[in-house]
Design a protein around this nucleic acid. Structure first.
Lengths: 246, 246
DNA sequence: TAAAGAATGTGTTAAATTTACACATTAAAT
DNA sequence: ATTTAATGTGTAAATTTAACACATTCTTTA
């Protein structure tokens, strides 16, 4: 190797070191998504959590999340997590809020986009995947890792508000459901008691329920009628209501 | 330089080249914020835009935005932009939505968090800074650069919805204002006509208006009373209404 | 198999909220 | 002094929401 070649090497190193320091100074911001996945079981609203694998937060639960891939749309990352964790496609998914405090994550600067999702717990594909996952009662306020409690709160607030403007509840129920189940769901989400007759009246007047002609099976009382949700009619009305938003 | 030393150099270069390729493959996602800044002037709702400096979008306008600094909270970045562009502190600012399609920005992978802000156009500090900035009528739908039209739409929809639930309009008006001005503002934002008596009734019943005892000056008709907004009372009620959200 | 228990299914009335609507008053402009 | 234009105010109708009770149907138990 000549001296000249050596000189070039040294120069190259200098250039590269500049880049290295840029990287090591953590001069970048990482981006993740976190999903608040709601379910409804035994007349209680649930949220899907995982035991945190970071020592600092040992024993605490956290939301399901992952880094966004460089060539992946933001919403695609959220759908990927849902698919990985629940095995389900085509779920209800809504972006809620982005959390970006400097110190929010112990591993460095990570900005996270929170998504809210609603799934039907009874779905058969689900059971297999529940190994390290846990359905937590929304009311048993387990303390969560990082700022995940804030993220959860934001999503739960959003859900409570949205469900009063749009009939999202169907995403949490089986295809066919009784009006009783529907009311229980609303009572669980909003944490209030509702008048049965007024509730039925309101839903019938919205005209999104299709009478399946079937009745409940294996219930320890008089069976109620089973309904299903009229998605087409809802989609049509949705557009007339609000234009673009939602 | 010995051969051994040369060998070390070559190894070092290999390490650094790995890092370099990591950087150059653009394996990172950049994060920015974009602000939709609303103003109200001449009975029209306005939005503050800047002429895009990218060739591809020459002639088009874009929102005011910037990259988030590595040690800067997300909301701090939004406030920084507001301060830089308008000279104003303590403005109303609300995060609206994060836009993260892979191809949304020509310069590479940039995910942007949209913020909505309301400012009082009459504020004296503003004029100086309007050099390359332009107040655009919200109704004259100039085509915007990138996906800024989507971002704008999201913020405008949010504003229309929010203003029907919370009296945000005061942020767009002078400290003292007449009920007529207030109604004009609401009509401009919602793009509808309102009944004058019902509008007044509703606002008085909310009980957020303080009669200043003063009257309008220099108006070419009978002067109306001037009111100011009762922030303390609003803050108190706000908490009772919604708990956390908003 | 008869009776008791428990949840379903249905309609009306009162209260509260929202909408529609008209005229006298005040100050500026002519 | 008269005209003009916007302010300021109240009531009645319509709609929406809230409160409320009993007969029916199926299961369970005696």
């Amino acid at each position: 190797m000549t001296l000249a070649e050596n000189g070039k090497l040294v120069n190259k190193i200098k250039t590269l070191q500049t880049i290295q320091s840029e990287v090591e100074s953590s001069n970048r911001i990482a981006l993740s998504v976190d999903c608040v996945i709601f379910g409804f079981d035994e007349n209680k609203l649930k949220v899907l959590l995982i035991r945190s694998d970071l020592k600092k937060y040992q024993g605490r639960y956290s939301l399901l999340g992952d880094l966004v891939h460089p060539n992946e749309d933001l919403s695609a990352a959220a759908y990927r997590i849902l698919k990985q964790r629940t095995g389900l496609n085509d779920l209800y998914l809504e972006q809620v809020e982005t959390f970006g405090s400097v110190g929010r994550h112990p591993a460095g600067r990570v900005v996270t986009v929170a998504y809210c999702s609603l799934i039907n717990v009874q779905h058969h594909k689900l059971r297999i995947l529940e190994n390290d996952l846990h359905w937590h009662d929304v009311k048993n306020t387990t303390e969560l890792a990082f700022d995940h409690q804030d993220i959860f709160d934001a999503c739960y607030n959003r859900l409570q508000k949205r469900i009063q403007e749009h009939p999202l509840g169907f995403n949490l129920l089986p295809k066919k459901f009784s009006l009783r189940e529907l009311q229980n769901l609303y009572e669980a989400i909003l944490d209030i008691k509702l008048d049965r007759r007024n509730f039925r009246k309101k839903f019938f007047s919205m005209d999104f329920l299709i009478d399946t002609g079937e009745m409940e099976q294996d219930v320890p009382h008089r069976p109620g009628k089973l309904y299903k949700f009229n998605y087409e009619k809802y989609e049509k009305k949705k557009k007339k209501w609000f234009g673009i938003d939602f």
